[in-house]
Each structure stands twice: as structure tokens, then as C-alpha cells.
Nucleic acid binder design. Structure first.
Lengths: 205, 205
DNA sequence: CCTATATGACTCTTGGGTAAGTTACCACGC
DNA sequence: GCGTGGTAACTTACCCAAGAGTCATATAGG
């Protein structure tokens, strides 16, 4: 089998393995066995386990980051923007949901190379998140920079949680997830009066 | 040093190490070095790495679960309930924030014993979360069980994210975090109209 | 015959776990 | 007071499995 085809196959299997089980839980022998080849061939093509993971990140990153940029141009703001972004993510991930988790894998080794790749791809995502969060806080008359930081973290984790929940429910389609997300946002926002009441109680500025 | 005192010291250091770095990233040699003792002593007192982690979970669980029950009795519903719960958690964790992460450590080995301990302590938390989520969805006229499941997951991750963000900002007090959380909830809920507009667009039931 | 594809059979490090022994302390009979 | 034995606290030096990474070698197409 020619190198290019073999590399693609290995990469695809590795993405799934890393995404589903996490970096530490996947051994090079596992990947080799899944691909029906021997370990040295993977080392020949990808150099190291870290190198293989780096290739997975680049593959997944190109897929996701482009979509984030695309949906950001729809011109929505606030929660509507969040929902449009989610819709795009669900569509892109439909047949390869596990690649999402590569970027949130806490078991990957602390290496400058991997950090740089993750940062490169998440930069666009976090930038878009920061824009969306800034819109929401501005609408509420809130200019606290730490609030913005915390809210961006919360949004990222909401996205992550919805995708991970979806991973555990393979029968649910991307379109259904989009509708579900919208329903959940509506349910939560309906309770806004309660939030303001509590805010007044705890004396929040 | 007598056994009880030594055990307490090891446990305290192990909780911090596991909580901050995660199960896989902490070696028994690390813990031993931090405690200024040798590895076999830890094995003598805790049996295994998993046993040590189990003890950490029990220690942390007793602290947190009691508080969840306490705040649940305040009788709040919906977002107000979420905020009261968060307030209690922030107070309890003030001086040992890292123990929160023990229960969300995805790098722990898949063992029946650990699963049981985590389940025992999180049962109360997830039960309370399910109640709160049900209240919110009922108010929105939503009876979809999968929506409830997904929203409970989202809430848990929002709590987790806020605590983890707080971990990274040691100078912020528990009271400040409570106020911050309330402000963020208000900012998000203000945008409810947008959510309903999008829901109509995507055709959500 | 030469290069790309491919492998079996290694090495070496990491880290969980253990066997066997050493020291410190304390109760107790004299 | 003081040997003395027993036990709790503690360590050194090791074993062993898992898994990352390598080397010498084999085969097959141009």
C-alpha cells in the first residue's frame, strides 16, 4: 500500500482511538493492531506517539476551526450566535464526533509542540467565544474583564459538554442536537427574574 | 510519627496532588517525596495507588455532599437554586479548592470500587441537579427526558468550570465567586428572546 | 539492483508493587 | 532502674509489567 493511503488510514484510526479513550489510554501497539500493521511502520511515518497525536490535532483542527470561522460570519450576536456556532459544529462532527475530544484531552503530555498546535487552532475558537461573551456582557452593562474570562470558560465547557453528551447518544442526529440545544437555552433563560433576584440578595454590583 | 497523623498528612498531600495534576500524572514516588517518606509506607497504610485515591475521594466527598444537601434545603428553585448551591460549594472549597477536581478526574482507572465511591457521593449531587433541571424544564413546558439528561450534564459542567476557573484565580474569594456567578447568569438570561427566535428558526418542538 | 514498504525481535525507561530487614519505642518482669 | 521482647514505624533494594522506541532484516515493484 502506498505511503499516502497508509498514513491516512493510520491517522483516521488514531483520531478515533485518541478521541474516544484519551492519549494515555491508547498505546502504539493498539493503533498498529487496529490498522492491521506493525508498530515500526507508524514510527517510520509519524516519528513518535506525540508526533502521531500532533497529526491528529492538525487533522481535527483544520476541520473544526474553518467551520467556526464560517459560522462566525453569519453575523449573529449573543445566544443566537452561540446556537449558530453549535449548529455548525454538530454538522461538521456528525460522522466523526470523537475528534472534538482531542482538543480537550487532559492526558496529553505537556509538550511545547502540542501546546502550540492546540493553541493555534483554539485561538480562533476562543477569539470567537470572547467576542460572543463580550456582546452578552455588554448588553447586560457588565464590563468586568474577569467576568468575561470566566464566562468564556463556561461557554467553552457548555459546548464541550453538549458534544460529549452527543457522543454517548449515537442515535441522535446533528439537527436534533441543534434543536435540543435551542430548547435548553430557552428553558434556562426563562428563569432570568430569579437570577436577578438572587443577584440583588448577594449584593452583586 | 503515629499512624493516624501520618495518614492524615499523606492524604492531605495526595488530595492536592491528585486534584491539581490528575490521577495518571501523579506517581506514588511523587507523593512519598512530597510527604518526606518512602513509598512502602504509603502502601502499608493505603494498600495501593487506587486505595489512596479512594481515600481521597471519601475525604473530599464527605466535605462536599453534606453541603449539597444542606443548600438543597433552602427551598429555592431553578436558577436561584443553582446559585444557592454554588454559594455553598464555593464556601466549602475556599481553602481546599482542588479537592473538587477529584470527582471529575477522567484519568482515574476504570475500577468498580472507585466507580462505586464516586457514585455514592455524586448520587446526591446528581439527584439535586436532576430536581433543579426538572424544575427549569417544567417551567418551560418541556417534558423531554433526553433534554433533562443533557441539561443536567451541562449544569454539572458549568459548576465544574466555575470551580476550575476559580482554582486558577487564587486571589478571588468565595463570596466574590458567588456574586460573579450571579452576574453571569443574569447576563446570559437577558438574551432569552434571541434564544426563542433561533428556536423558532430551527423548528424545535 | 535499489528504494519503499514492511516486520520480528529486540532495548530501555517508567512506575506500581513487594520482600526483607532496621530502628525506635513501650510495656513489663525483676 | 534496667534488660528484654514485642510491635509499630520506616527504609533500602529489589521485581515485574507495560509500553515507547529501535535495529537488522525481508520482500516486492520499477
Amino acid at each position: 500500500m502506498p505511503r499516502a493511503a497508509r498514513e491516512t488510514e493510520i491517522l483516521s484510526l488514531a483520531c478515533r482511538a485518541f478521541g474516544e479513550a484519551g492519549y494515555v489510554a491508547v498505546s502504539m501497539a493498539d493503533v498498529a493492531a487496529a490498522a492491521g500493521i506493525s508498530k515500526p511502520l507508524i514510527y517510520n511515518y509519524f516519528g513518535s506517539k506525540e508526533g502521531l497525536f500532533a497529526s491528529c490535532l492538525r487533522f481535527a483542527g483544520d476541520l473544526i476551526a474553518d467551520d467556526i470561522d464560517r459560522t462566525a460570519e453569519a453575523g449573529q450576536v449573543g445566544l443566537a450566535r452561540a446556537l449558530v456556532t453549535l449548529e455548525g459544529i454538530f454538522e461538521v462532527l456528525e460522522e466523526r464526533r470523537w475528534i472534538w475530544r482531542l482538543f480537550f484531552d487532559t492526558t496529553r503530555p505537556a509538550s511545547q509542540e502540542l501546546d502550540a498546535i492546540v493553541a493555534r487552532y483554539t485561538a480562533r475558537l476562543t477569539e470567537r467565544a470572547a467576542e460572543g461573551v463580550a456582546e452578552m456582557l455588554a448588553a447586560a452593562g457588565n464590563a468586568d474583564p474577569l467576568d468575561a474570562e470566566a464566562l468564556a470558560a463556561v461557554w467553552a465547557s457548555v459546548f464541550d459538554t453538549l458534544v460529549v453528551w452527543w457522543l454517548g447518544h449515537p442515535e441522535v442526529s446533528a439537527a436534533e442536537m441543534t434543536r435540543r440545544s435551542a430548547r435548553l437555552f430557552v428553558a434556562v433563560t426563562l428563569d432570568g427574574d430569579a437570577a436577578q433576584r438572587v443577584l440583588a440578595e448577594v449584593g452583586g454590583a
